[in-house]
Amino acid sequence: MDALLATLVSGLVLGSLYALMSSGLSLVWTTLGVFNFSHGALMMVGAFVAWTVSEILGLGPVTGILSGTLAAGLIGIIIERLLVRPFYSNRNMLLITAMTTLAAMVILERGAQMIWGARLKQLPRLIPGEVQILGTTISAHEALLIVLAPLILVALWRFTVMTNRGRSLRAVGQNQDSAALLGIDVPVAFALAFGISAALAGLTGALLGSIRFITPTMGSEPLTKAMIVVIFGGLGNLGATAGAAYLIGFIEAFLIFGLGLYWTPFVLFLLMILVLLFRPNGVFGGK
């Protein structure tokens, strides 16, 4: 019973991480129709900047996390401007932007390697100490992640549903031309979506930097998992994506518990193939 509860809690931590990662991917996808391969690298940038500000400049973890979030958001806007916007009118934008964002990922990862080097780094925990959840002890920082993820998701959802800015993002995603006719500045909406998504990635990275080691390639594993999440959930619906994120988190935790760490990614992939054979648009996917 204890093991079961511990697995549930670890699934909750993983699910929160995946939800934060994949909701950003999903936001860019619904607004721009772009799959951002540099999302994992943006997460890594957030972690490195947070580490530099917090540890090297000594401004403390909170300032660090905020700067990491901001830096990733800014780089996201730059990526949108330089690598995505020139290809909007292209018929094959989907494939081209997949390639350019992949190139952006290479640039960011190799750049980080050159700036920060290969030595393993870690941020101090935002909240020290430990917390008991369902009879399982986890660090307070992981508990913070569990609490923060749904809050951020709800905030994001409220933003896209309740505010005019947020509604404009969805309008642009649904029909660019009509949105433009209604006076929505489409390029601004695109930049905003990319910036928010990248900032979310940076925040995730900065939070993860206290749990895992900060390395130039730390983003690629969460990105792969976020991909599995969006394949399960279908791209294009925040709720479905978040649901799938927690589902994958729990499945992964139980697989690790039952099969061990080694076979888990393999089984997840097989599961994904099965899903795709029967539900090509994802488990919760509609259209």
Binding site: W29, F35, F37, L94, L95, A98, T224, M227, I228, V230, I231, L235, F269, M272, I273, L276, P280
Partner: peptide, 10 residues
């Protein structure tokens, strides 16, 4: 479309 990219990349 994008699902081909995702699956082959994953």
């Amino acid at each position: 479309g994008i699902y081909v990219v995702l699956v082959t990349f994953a």
